[in-house]
Simulated scan of single mutants.
Amino acid sequence: MAAEPRLQAEQLHVQRAGKQVLAGISFAVAGGEVYGLLGGNGAGKSTTLATFLGFLPVASGRVRVDGRDVHADVVAARRAVAYLPEAAALYPHLDARENLRYFVQLAGVDSSATAIDAALDQVSLPAEARSRRLQGYSKGMRQKVAIALALLRGTGILLLDEPTSGLDPLAIDEFHALVRGLADAGKAILMVTHDVYGACQVADRIGLLRGGQLVAEFAAPAGQRIDTETVHRAFSARAAA
């Protein structure tokens, strides 16, 4: 029996400033999988995330988080997800532990030193870096702190917005390994990206978004990755159309 989706878009239409940005897209993400929403600039990727967070009204269709209509209970929907933007909004003058302690106290969850260090262990942030201010961190290290915050909040759903943009190749590989591990532990992960190779490395399924429409989907064969060349050809053909 297939797992119930944690995230679901059903014939979703969204307009911004009177212009249609999403035109009837439908997809679902279950626990234990990474869904890569792939597309170029202006395809509607970030609009999709904003709609799941309840920041944009729906012209027609539905978005659901854990079976709830987002706009019927936006507070519950936001509580169920952790959103990681391209540039994580953390305080550069605080160290990793101080950032996590501050944000989890705001969320009303366990802010003990033991819990914080356990989350930082899980994302493999080096022990010697944890007491350094974030202003000296690389982007990859800041992303790890942001993921640790999501783990501390105990959410089962992650929304990732171009998470590897600006990372070096080693940091990208480390981030993908972290995301894959979280999915294998049962998290539902929706990652929007324009990086074909990266999406194929980590995603179980990929939806190709163009002009607000989901024009193709690709699934990884059992025990394998999605074929990069196949997706790249489809991406390039759509981009040139």
Rank of each mutant, 00 (worst) to 15 (best):
154 G>R: 11
233 R>H: 15
51 T>A: 06
60 S>M: 12
70 V>R: 11
8 Q>G: 04
12 L>I: 13
43 A>C: 05
163 P>C: 06
178 L>I: 06
234 A>N: 14
113 A>R: 14
174 E>W: 04
222 A>P: 14
144 K>H: 06
184 D>R: 14
85 P>T: 02
25 I>K: 02
65 V>K: 01
130 R>S: 07
95 D>I: 11
156 G>L: 10
109 V>D: 10
147 I>L: 08
107 A>D: 10
169 P>D: 00
196 V>E: 00
30 A>C: 14
112 S>C: 08
193 T>Y: 00
184 D>Q: 13
148 A>D: 01
113 A>Q: 13
22 L>N: 00
175 F>S: 09
3 A>W: 03
68 R>L: 13
64 R>C: 12
101 R>E: 09
93 H>I: 13
61 G>E: 05
82 A>V: 01
188 A>F: 05
69 D>I: 09
241 A>Q: 10
127 A>G: 08
159 L>R: 05
147 I>Q: 00
152 L>G: 01
168 D>I: 12
238 R>W: 15
204 D>E: 08
146 A>L: 02
15 Q>Y: 10
71 H>I: 11
212 G>Q: 03
114 T>Q: 14
119 A>F: 15
101 R>S: 11
123 V>S: 00
73 D>E: 13
156 G>I: 06
121 D>H: 13
107 A>V: 02
241 A>I: 09
182 L>I: 01
